[in-house]
Design a protein around this nucleic acid. Sequence first.
DNA 1: GAAAGATTGGAGTGTCAACTCCAGAAAAAG
DNA 2: CTTTTTCTGGAGTTGACACTCCAATCTTTC
Lengths: 220, 220
Amino acid sequence: MTRTGTRTDTADETDGTGPRLTRKGLATRGRIVAAAADLMFERGVAGTSTDDVRAAAGVSTSQIYHYFTDKNALIRAVIAHQTDAVLDAQEPLLSRLDSMAALRAWRDLVVDLQRQRHCEGGCPIGSLASELSEGDPQARADLVDGFARWEGAIRDGLHAMRDRGDLRADADPERLALATLAALQGGLLLTQMRRETAPLEAALDSMLDIIERWTVTTAG
Amino acid sequence: MTRTGTRTDTADETDGTGPRLTRKGLATRGRIVAAAADLMFERGVAGTSTDDVRAAAGVSTSQIYHYFTDKNALIRAVIAHQTDAVLDAQEPLLSRLDSMAALRAWRDLVVDLQRQRHCEGGCPIGSLASELSEGDPQARADLVDGFARWEGAIRDGLHAMRDRGDLRADADPERLALATLAALQGGLLLTQMRRETAPLEAALDSMLDIIERWTVTTAG
DNA sequence: GAAAGATTGGAGTGTCAACTCCAGAAAAAG
DNA sequence: CTTTTTCTGGAGTTGACACTCCAATCTTTC
């Protein structure tokens, strides 16, 4: 499991405070989070009850409340889970976005992923973000961290390109990475709505065009 | 009230079928939709109960069910309401996006609007889209229409620029408009998360850069 | 192997949300 | 003015959902 950036493990019971977990306990906890993540991706957070999670994970009611103080704690664990899952799905490309070829390969991967899903569900992090950002400040903070890791990976690649001289010295990796992540998120939302990858492709291709415009043409 | 594109008035009781509404009835219906739109924007669709709407609109339970068959019908009315509201808020600029100056003015307007809201709430249409697209197919269809009107306005402006010769003949207004809307939506989402307009600005500025690159420099 | 602590099952509780019903007030139609 | 239709108030019903409780059973620890 490749890690991009730093994990901030907040608010679930994996830290020092609560009772310690045995191997078995850790496994059940994992099953609960995985089941919850799947259901919340398909039906939304508000659309999945703790009883749905209970059934899907094959556990009893008390187990959920043994491992999580309440539904909010479970939601935060789902955020952490999905952040890791999304970023991992883009490895090893994501941590090496330091050439136009790599960026294009990454673009293709993201587009293919949506096609495989028949353009359903959108971005697992983006939809959580949209649903939770106004209601739960802690959730919003976790999601900001998740996006920061994503954006950081893109930015690092662009920085590497600039340091190597492939990108002009006055290029702004920070800003380009932010715009790329925004284009990706918006593209995913419209793609989810329209059930076709055209919006995602248009958005990402436009951003790659911009980035390419900042490259130094060695032949010129 | 300026209209952009064609309204598709689906699924609420304003069409021929149901009982006809008196002036007073139309007013109460309007109050219900407006109250529901506000609440759903602040707390999300799942986060607002019909009783919340009842209280905010100052009506009785039965009135809501007199004007709407169920909560889904109310939600669809809210979608129509918000689509109109969002597009109207961008008039008269939106229907005249046929120059770089106009595009930049529009960008500033959108950014300012978010600043005024302290970057809270994101896009009224976008958040509805994210919350409803997987659950309710009818809602998704309505939202696709809403986005199409938005995208259409941008596309028409770019078409005008191309027809006038300000944009190169091989520019693709369709694709550029789609990418711009995606950048806007993604920028709004990240802006909502981070409570600062930087992502929105980066995303929109990048897209305007791209469009500008397709302009014909009369002086050159 | 016994005490201590972690894990599990499942019935039970209180609250809240969507929706129904019906009777009475207001308005429109004739 | 009378009839018909729309509009309104609010009590009541049904179900779902988050969460609690407690007793039983594994696992670790010493």
